[in-house]
C-alpha cells in the first residue's frame, strides 16, 4: 500500500477538504496534537505547499488500516482554518463568532434530530453553511431564519444524495485504489502540470479548462468567450502549446 495509507484516506486527500483532513489528523493519527492539526491539514492541502513537503509529511504518518476516514467519529472538535490571524479581533469578526456560537448547536441538532443525519455529517454540513453565510452575510436580514432555512435545505439535499450512495462494508477488503497505486511517482508530474497551468494567462486558463477539463466544443468555447470559432480554435491550440512549454520549463521563443 503506498505510503501506508488506505485508499479511502487517499480519497479524502484527493478531495482536499481541509475540514476532513484536519479532523482525521486530530482524531485518528497519534502524534498530531489537535492544536497543530489545522495548520498541518492546510500545509498538506495548501496550493503553494503541494510539494516535496507533502510527500515528507505523508511518509512520516504512522497510519494503519484502522484509521480510515469512513470510521472517524466526530467529537466536539470544530474545524479550523490555517490562515494567518491578526492578534486583535475586529468587530465584524466578533459579531460573526457570536452568530456562530449562538446557532451552531441548534443547527447541528436540527440536522441530527429532525433529519436523522449522523453527527459527523451534520457538523460538516453546518460548517459549510457557515462558510456560505459568511459570503452572503451583508444581505441577510434575519440571520437565524436564514441559517435554519439553510440547514433544512442542506439536510434534505444530503439525504437525497445519501440514498444514491451505497455504503462500504464495515469489514470489507480495503484494497488500494488503482488510481493511487503509483501516486508517489505521479504526484510531482501533477504538481508540475498545476504549476504550469497557473503560470499561463487567465484567458488561456479559461480556454483550456473549458476545452480539456469540462469538455466544451470549440463553437461552445467561442460562444462563452464571445469570439469567433476560428479564434477560439487558435486560442486553444496556442494556449496548449504555451502550457506545454511552461510544463517543460522551456523558455518562450
Amino acid at each position: 500500500m503506498p505510503l501506508g495509507i488506505s485508499w479511502r484516506c487517499w480519497e479524502c486527500f484527493a478531495e482536499r477538504d481541509w475540514t476532513i483532513v484536519s479532523r482525521v489528523l486530530t482524531e485518528d493519527w497519534e502524534g498530531v496534537a489537535s492544536a497543530n492539526a489545522p495548520e498541518l491539514a492546510s500545509t498538506i492541502l495548501g496550493f503553494h505547499a503541494l510539494s516535496d513537503r507533502w510527500i515528507q509529511i505523508t511518509h512520516s504518518f504512522p497510519v494503519d488500516r484502522s484509521t480510515i476516514l469512513a470510521r472517524y467519529t466526530v467529537s466536539r472538535n470544530r474545524p479550523a482554518m490555517s490562515v494567518h490571524f491578526p492578534s486583535e479581533p475586529g468587530h465584524a469578526e466578533q459579531e460573526f463568532a457570536a452568530t456562530y456560537e449562538e446557532h451552531y448547536d441548534l443547527l447541528v441538532g436540527i440536522a441530527v434530530e429532525r433529519f436523522g443525519i449522523s453527527h459527523a455529517d451534520a457538523e460538516t454540513l453546518v460548517h459549510e453553511i457557515f462558510f456560505d453565510f459568511l459570503v452572503h452575510v451583508d444581505r441577510i436580514r434575519d440571520r437565524r431564519a436564514w441559517l435554519i432555512g439553510a440547514v433544512y435545505n442542506a439536510s434534505k439535499d444530503h439525504l437525497r444524495r445519501a440514498q444514491r450512495v451505497e455504503p462500504l462494508p464495515e469489514h470489507g477488503p480495503d484494497t488500494v485504489d488503482p488510481r493511487y497505486a503509483r501516486v508517489a511517482e505521479q504526484w510531482p508530474a501533477e504538481l508540475a502540470a498545476r504549476e504550469a497551468f497557473a503560470r499561463i494567462t487567465p484567458r488561456c486558463q479559461l480556454a483550456l479548462r473549458l476545452r480539456y477539463i469540462e469538455g466544451h466544443t470549440i463553437p461552445s468555447i467561442a460562444k462563452i468567450l464571445d469570439t469567433t470559432k476560428q479564434y477560439a480554435a487558435k486560442l486553444v491550440s496556442r494556449c496548449l502549446e504555451l502550457a506545454h512549454r511552461r510544463y517543460g520549463g522551456r523558455k518562450e521563443s
Partner: peptide, 14 residues
C-alpha cells in the same frame, strides 16, 4: 485557541 467560533470569526476578517 484556534477553532470553532473564533476560527470562523477570524476567517471573516481574513
Amino acid at each position: 485557541m484556534i477553532g470553532g467560533a473564533r476560527t470562523f470569526g477570524h476567517f471573516a476578517r481574513q
